[in-house]
Design a protein around this nucleic acid. Structure first.
Lengths: 246, 246
DNA sequence: CGAGTACTTGAAAGATCTCAAATTAGGTGG
DNA sequence: CCACCTAATTTGAGATCTTTCAAGTACTCG
């Protein structure tokens, strides 16, 4: 499975010097496997360790007082996981593998050392945080303002698009790998209602489903159904000056 | 009106050297007033200018396709505004003053120059972004999972707490300064329903209202009503090593 | 004092949830 | 490979929450 690395991800918006690139590669050198369904990090756990996702797919969620679960984000290769430990010293989200995955553990001290030697990497980190924030703001608007049908359509499109980014071979057909309950926890709906909305999208000819696989039949219509603010990437730090290195 | 500055805000989680402090002060030197109701930045506007809020209160919102508005965050003294211009070169949110405010305009080039000279400031920036992200995740969970009554209770508590942070004199009584329609746009509810929920909270003896002023009568009950994940600050970068400065 | 905006309330429509039960799918031990 | 067991999906019906529409009241600003 081809997968974007953290270096690729950062390199796409910031031309890296050889030494910067080497430092990032060194950071993400180690590997740890996470089996589908396994928990990598638990909410509120004290820790100084964060991760770069190298392959697979994970999700981050928070548990509410009433025991319900809000899935905050889906994570794909090239994403940084549990960055909250840098500033909070603990994890804000539980991280669980949706598919078999490989992560690179990074201690925050290592990361910080690298950013102090290569200050532009600290800005790259801030940029990644900003991207997350922008995605979160979009998700917020989506959940607050759109219908159940739109939210389900949106999550399908998001999953397909993000999967495609790390595997360009993915076309209109893909396997979400989530239960309807999980889709519900991501969209703020009950599993029962997610089911009805999937059925409706199917009845309306926007998607087809069989054996856990979803095929997008009418992508323009699905986009319209999702009526999402399309916040195309657009991250660009290439204007940063180069810096002398310590 | 006493108000936290950006330097205070960062200083609270990261002991700053004299020169770091001086650099931050220089960044936020200039001032521009924004009259209540005035728009400082418009969504999607290309720009390289961001702001530090010095006093007052503002809000950031996005407009959806259907013309409705989602208020993404409320901004208080010490907050950075429109940081998206750093990585996107354009504003993701429209920023409007809720009360008469004063901001310090900062060009991203200035900010970046400071962070390259003082790399720890870049990490402070990343930390601020993370705080925003954490708040956003909480808001997301709140809107996705809680009742209208809980959301209204939560927004009242949030406003009171954040106002108190920049003005410790504020007790149980405060002036939100928002219309019910704005509260609705922040919580994903209609103005009509916000009204009903305010009335319900009042009838139940949790709050009192008169002339735009809200008084919290039973704070524990209001907290219970809001059933929010209280993510107390906890940001700490004091463990960062000091760095030699250029 | 008048006009516009915000607030308030009622009634009905619509969306989503809850509860319950039937069906299907996937995984495991024999 | 089969039989069973559990988890996931599917569907129906009624309850609940929120919105919509409509109308009247209160406030604020010029």
């Amino acid at each position: 499975m081809p997968a974007l690395s953290l270096v690729d991800r950062i390199g796409a918006f910031l031309p890296l010097s050889t030494t910067e690139r080497a430092a990032l590669l060194e950071l993400t050198e180690r590997e740890r496997g996470v089996r589908r369904g396994a928990t990598l990090v638990r909410q509120n756990e004290r820790s100084t360790e964060l991760f770069a996702l190298k392959s697979g797919m994970m999700m981050g969620y928070v548990l509410l007082d009433d025991g319900s679960r809000q899935i905050v984000r889906f994570l794909f290769p090239g994403d940084l996981l549990s960055t909250n430990v840098i500033t909070y010293g603990k994890a804000h989200q539980t991280l669980v593998a949706v598919a078999d995955s490989v992560v690179a553990p990074i201690d925050r001290a290592q990361l910080v050392e690298a950013t102090l030697r290569f200050p532009r990497l600290a800005l790259a980190l801030a940029a990644i945080e900003q991207t997350e924030g922008a995605a979160l703001a979009d998700r917020l608007a989506g959940i607050a303002k759109t219908s159940a049908r739109a939210r389900v359509a949106a999550v399908l499109l998001e999953l397909r698009d993000r999967m495609r980014r790390s595997d360009p071979a993915i076309g209109d057909s893909f396997v979400p790998g989530l239960t309807q309950e999980e889709i519900g926890d991501a969209t703020g709906l009950t599993a029962v209602h997610v089911n009805r909305m999937l059925r409706k999208l199917e009845d309306q000819g926007l998607i087809a489903r069989m054996a856990g696989r979803v095929t997008i039949l009418d992508e323009p219509a699905l986009h319209r159904a999702a009526d999402r603010v399309d916040r195309q990437a657009g991250v660009d730090l290439s204007w940063l000056p180069e810096t002398r290195e310590a």
